[in-house]
C-alpha cells in the first residue's frame, strides 16, 4: 500500500483550471481518486532496478472511500531481460483499510499482489550430486502476493510486508541457486545452495521506513531505509537506502533521488543484456517527473 490521497489540489485548481464553475456542489464526496503518471531515469524497487538501469514509466491509480477502504493499481514498465519472456510490464494491485491520525499514529492493513504478465524463467530446482548434473527444469514466474501492515507517526511511515505466495519475485532454488551458478565464477556457492534441497521463499519479510521533511512550501526531502529478509535464502537478504528531493513546479513534481543497496550476493541481481552481464543493484541517481491528475 502506498499513500492514499484525495484528489484535492486546491492550489492548482484555483489557478490553472480553465473555465471553472462557480456553482458549489452540496454533497460531500464519499470517495477520492488520484491518477499519477511518472517517468523516471530508472525504475527501482527496493533499490533494485526493474528496468535494467534504463528509463521507465509508471501510472498509479488510487481510490479511497470514506469508510477507510483503499485500493491501488500500478502499472510499470520493466525490462524483458530481467523479467524473461514477459510483456515488459509490472502490475501491482493492492487493497486495504487505513485509519488513525495523519499527524500522529496511523495504521493500514491490506493485501497486495505484484504480477509480471507472461514473465517466467526455467531453471532446475534440484541438483543431482551423484551424477553431478542439474535436475529437470521447472518454470517459475515472478509473481508475488503479500500481507501488508503500515504503521506511521506523522511524516514517518513504516511498512512491513509478509510474502504469502510460494515465491517472492521468483526466489526459489531454481532462481537463487541457478543465478549463483550462472553468474559466479566459483560454482561452490551455487552448489551449496542446491545442496540444501528444493526450497521456496514463502514467508519472506520486507521492511520499509520512509520519512518526508518539508524544506520549503514546494520542496520535500525524502529519506528511505529498507530491508528484505528472504526466507530460506539468506544470501538474498539485502538493505536499501535512499535520499531524495522533490520539488513541485509548474504542476509537476520534479524528483532527484540517490538510491543505494547493500547486497550480499550481487549475482542474484544481475541480468544478461546482449552478451553483457549487468548489475541491477548498487548506487545510482534517479531523476523523475510526475504529475497527479
Amino acid at each position: 500500500m502506498r499513500t492514499y490521497t484525495t484528489r484535492y489540489a486546491m492550489a492548482a485548481a484555483l489557478c490553472c483550471a480553465a473555465g471553472p464553475t462557480l456553482a458549489i456542489a452540496d454533497e460531500m464526496s464519499s470517495y477520492a481518486v488520484d491518477v499519477t503518471a511518472k517517468v523516471s531515469s530508472d525504475i527501482r524497487t527496493r533499490g533494485i532496478s526493474d528496468s535494467l538501469n534504463r528509463p521507465g514509466a509508471k501510472v498509479t491509480l488510487q481510490v479511497a472511500h470514506e469508510t477507510g477502504l483503499v485500493a491501488l493499481a500500478e502499472f510499470t514498465t520493466v525490462s524483458k531481460k530481467q523479467f524473461l519472456d514477459g510483456d515488459g510490464a509490472g502490475v501491482l494491485l493492492a487493497g486495504g483499510y487505513r485509519f488513525g491520525d495523519p499527524d500522529a499514529w496511523h495504521y493500514g492493513v491490506g493485501l497486495a499482489a505484484e504480477m509480471f504478465p507472461g514473465a517466467q524463467f526455467k531453471a532446475p530446482n534440484r541438483f543431482d550430486f551423484e551424477t553431478f548434473t542439474p535436475g529437470e527444469e521447472h518454470s517459475t514466474n515472478y509473481n508475488s502476493q503479500f500481507a501488508v501492515l503500515e504503521i506511521g507517526y506523522g511524516a514517518l511511515e513504516g511498512r512491513i510486508a509478509r510474502v504469502l505466495s510460494k515465491n517472492y519475485r521468483g526466489a526459489n532454488s531454481g532462481g537463487v541457486c541457478g543465478a549463483q551458478l550462472q553468474f559466479r565464477d566459483d560454482p561452490t556457492k551455487g552448489l551449496d545452495c542446491y545442496a540444501k534441497g528444493d526450497r521456496n521463499s514463502r514467508g519472506s519479510m520486507l521492511y520499509d521506513l520512509d520519512y518526508k521533511y518539508a524544506l520549503g512550501i514546494n520542496t520535500n526531502l525524502k529519506l528511505h531505509a529498507g530491508y528484505q529478509q528472504i526466507e530460506n535464502f539468506s544470501e538474498a537478504d539485502f538493505a536499501d537506502y535512499g535520499a531524495g528531493l522533490v520539488h513541485h513546479w509548474w504542476g509537476f513534481d520534479w524528483g532527484l533521488d540517490w538510491v543505494t543497496t547493500k547486497t550480499k550476493a550481487r549475482e542474484l541481481y544481475m541480468a544478461e543484456d546482449d552478451g553483457h552481464v549487468r548489475t541491477t543493484d548498487g548506487s545510482r541517481w534517479v531523476a523523475s517527473i510526475s504529475r497527479t491528475f
Binding site: Y4, T5, T6, Y8, A9, M10, A11, S29, S30, Y31, A32, A64, H65, E66, T67, G68, V70, R98, F99, G100, D101, P102, D103, H106, A214, I217
Partner: peptide, 21 residues
C-alpha cells in the same frame, strides 16, 4: 507559519495537505 489545508474523505488519514504562505 504556514497554512495547512487538508481535504479528505471519511477520516483525515485519507487525505492530502496543501500548504499556503
Amino acid at each position: 507559519g504556514r497554512l495547512n489545508v487538508r481535504a479528505f474523505v471519511g477520516t483525515e488519514v485519507l487525505g492530502k495537505t496543501e500548504q499556503f504562505e
